[in-house]
Design a protein around this nucleic acid. Structure first.
Lengths: 137, 137
DNA sequence: CTTGACCTTCCCATGATGGGAAGGCCTACA
DNA sequence: TGTAGGCCTTCCCATCATGGGAAGGTCAAG
């Protein structure tokens, strides 16, 4: 299987497959006489594993850890769970951060007329105008 | 005021102030005879505006738009609100995406023993083992 | 024999930020 | 007067994951 077909089969672009090889995430595949990379079902399986891990938001570094655990038959499930848990914590931290932004922005937007006039509490807030923090009740 | 003091006063690092100047987000400041950048209260105000916009998750490109609107006295608040609204939508999309990841990960973690044994539904899921999607009820 | 679809490597760009080197300037202190 | 250290300057490099594209080799079908 050439790289294009492996990309098709795994959902990982050819560009990324080469990159993963370059950074040592995956092993260099065999080459044909014309220097083309050749992949088998096993490598495609690994690529799909990576793809799935990435889609769950794991970094390539975390993905590498998970890949090694996957291939280590003497791993403990606790080790895997640790990786997952710290990733969950990271995601939840980022979610909370963004939710804070959304909350502020929605409040400001709500207070903004959104009309033809220039007066805008959103800009007032960005400009540090404390007036903007006052709720017009 | 030198760049270090402007950084201190605005909360934007000297490194970033120079970068914002380089990309045209802020105007090049005056220079002293020894080629040092000099900032006044106005420039610090702009930097604080940028800082605040960044803390609300606006990209530098969006921040530039907001800065221009801020400085344009004939702006409409609708124009500002549009920028804020599309940013809110973007944040909410990303939040939902991450929440989906968290949901899946929590489910898998819940199903994972987290003990000394190697059996792990998290890895099974990443490996595409459909068994892992089965809820053990 | 040509055309088009592959493949190869190499370089560059993204977005926002930090690190650090090499060198210039200024101030305080001995 | 010399020097130490704390600023400043520009320039280059690294991050993280991905894509774009050029220049050139290979292969299969027509």
């Amino acid at each position: 299987m050439n790289i294009g077909q492996a990309a098709e089969a795994s959902g990982v672009s050819a560009k990324m497959i080469r990159y993963y090889e370059e950074i040592g995430l995956i092993a260099p595949p065999a080459r044909t006489g014309n220097n083309y990379r050749v992949y088998g079902a096993d490598q495609v399986h690994v690529l799909r594993f990576i793809k799935r891990a990435r889609s769950l938001g794991f970094s390539l570094e975390e993905t590498e850890t998970l890949l090694k655990l996957w291939q280590d038959k003497s791993r403990t499930s606790a080790a895997v769970k640790d990786v997952a848990t710290s990733h969950i914590n990271d995601l939840e931290r980022r979610i909370a951060e963004m939710q804070g932004m959304v909350k502020t922005l929605k409040h400001l937007s709500h207070c903004c007329g959104g009309d033809h006039r220039p007066d805008c509490p959103i800009l007032d807030d960005l400009a540090g105008d404390s007036q903007a923090h006052t709720h017009n009740v």
